[in-house]
Amino acid sequence: MAAYLQNIATAVPDQIYQQDFLRDKMKEYLSDDRATRSIIHRIYSQSGIEKRHTVVNDFNANGDPRLFFQQDGSVAAPSTGTRNSLYSEHAKKLFVDVARSLITDTPDIEADDITHVITVSCTGFFAPGPGYEIVKQLGLSRSTQRFHLGFMGCFAAFPALKMAKSFCDSQDDAVVLVICLELCSLHFQRSRETDHLISASVFADGGAGALVSNRTPQNNQTVYKLDRFATSIIEQSEDDMAWTIGDTGFDMILSTYVPELIESNLQSALKPLLEAYDTNKDQINHWAIHPGGRAILDKVEKNLGLEVQQLASSRSVLSDYGNMSSATILFVLKHLLDQPMQQSPERVLGMAFGPGLTVESGLFLKQRG
């Protein structure tokens, strides 16, 4: 039985900051020496990011209380509780907005058709959870099954899609919403350590969702057929990408060594994936790589010998949105889904990297109904 990703919807906070504006503000607030200012300037200028969305509006506060960057020039370190309260306030709306768009914009799908809701996030918690909010606010059936994947990081969309496919494989009438929502900017750390500066330069806020079902696409609709998924772990790398809860927010460790770790281990990690997919690198039309940072995309492109256009969607999403953790790969897949097809089907290999260092991937067949 075939499972199809029939639609992808995205949502971002209204507040937008240009990357060069944030670069200059970071230099102003966090550095009082030339060396640190130079590091900040280089990190931000070479990030491959033009702008990012955030729920933090410190620089447009108009007299309202600021979260981090105070008017007297100091940088606050709000408690984890304060940050999580803001997460709950903003995340509920964005989760529901994405789910509403998926239902409204998918042909022949109504609220009553939804059988499962899978929500994903690693940047906050509340209960009743986001699945409950979606069911309640959109009037879904009270019997809708709800699942939440938490604290998995940037690769979490893949386990969620895997779960959705399993539901469709076992239930003919399954119609599954997968919603990934991250508010990474709430966990900014006022540290001058290079790893923290890198995290602050790339992470952003946004949500994205996918609607998955067994329904055969109609009326020339362009969809992804979910083919296969695979997982691989890069050994002795767990200290280079980690996510822990502290007293002043969640502490993301994103080592400067991550791009090199990915480059040196990509071929060995990719080999079992391609074997699982019964394909080879040259048969992949598009690569939907999670844009954790420009250096990661550069290393993947060089290591795999890819053409520039094969990573165009990943670079476009990085430029326009930054790294939104688990939601980001769905932005990339949507960008690719919206592009004109040169043939049918087209093979798309999606890949994301997260704590572990874990490599999650999926093979998607882009095709018309």
Rank of each mutant, 00 (worst) to 15 (best):
L149F: 15
L149Q: 08
F151T: 10
G153T: 09
F155T: 09
F155E: 10
F155W: 13
F158P: 09
P159D: 10
P159M: 07
A160Q: 04
A160R: 05
L161E: 08
L161G: 07
L161F: 09
K162E: 15
M163W: 11
K165M: 11
K165I: 01
K165P: 02
S166P: 02
S166Q: 14
F167D: 03
C168V: 14
C168D: 07
C168N: 06
C168I: 07
D169N: 14
D169M: 12
S170P: 02
S170C: 09
S170F: 06
S170E: 13
Q171I: 08
Q171D: 15
Q171V: 12
D172N: 09
D173H: 12
D173T: 13
A174L: 05
V175F: 06
V176H: 08
V176M: 09
L177C: 12
L177A: 04
I179L: 12
C180S: 11
E182Y: 09
L183T: 06
S185E: 10
S185C: 10
L186V: 11
L186R: 09
H187F: 10
H187T: 09
H187V: 13
S191D: 15
R192K: 13
R192G: 05
T194V: 15
T194K: 14
D195A: 10
D195R: 08
H196A: 15
L197S: 03
I198A: 04
A200V: 04
A200N: 15
S201V: 05
V202T: 06
F203R: 00
D205Y: 05
D205K: 05
D205L: 11
G206Q: 06
G207M: 04
A208P: 05
A208E: 03
A208G: 00
A210N: 00
L211Q: 01
S213H: 01
N214R: 14
R215I: 02
T216P: 02
T216A: 10
P217Q: 03
P217K: 01
P217V: 05
N219W: 01
N220T: 00
Q221N: 02
T222L: 04
V223G: 01
V223K: 06
Y224K: 03
K225R: 15
L226D: 02
L226V: 04
L226Q: 07
D227P: 02
R228V: 06
R228Y: 09
R228N: 11
R228G: 11
F229V: 07
F229I: 05
F229T: 09
A230K: 11
T231I: 13
S232V: 08
I233R: 03
I233Q: 07
I233P: 01
E235C: 01
Q236G: 00
S237N: 05
M241Q: 04
M241K: 07
A242W: 12
W243D: 12
G246L: 10
G246V: 03
T248Q: 14
G249S: 01
G249P: 07
D251P: 02
L254S: 00
L254P: 02
S255D: 06
Y257R: 13
Y257A: 13
Y257W: 01
Y257N: 13
V258I: 15
V258L: 03
E260K: 13
E260Q: 14
E263F: 10
E263D: 14
E263V: 10
N265A: 14
N265W: 11
Q267D: 14
S268R: 13
S268D: 15
S268C: 05
P272T: 00
L273H: 07
L273W: 02
L273K: 00
L274V: 05
E275P: 01
E275H: 06
A276Q: 12
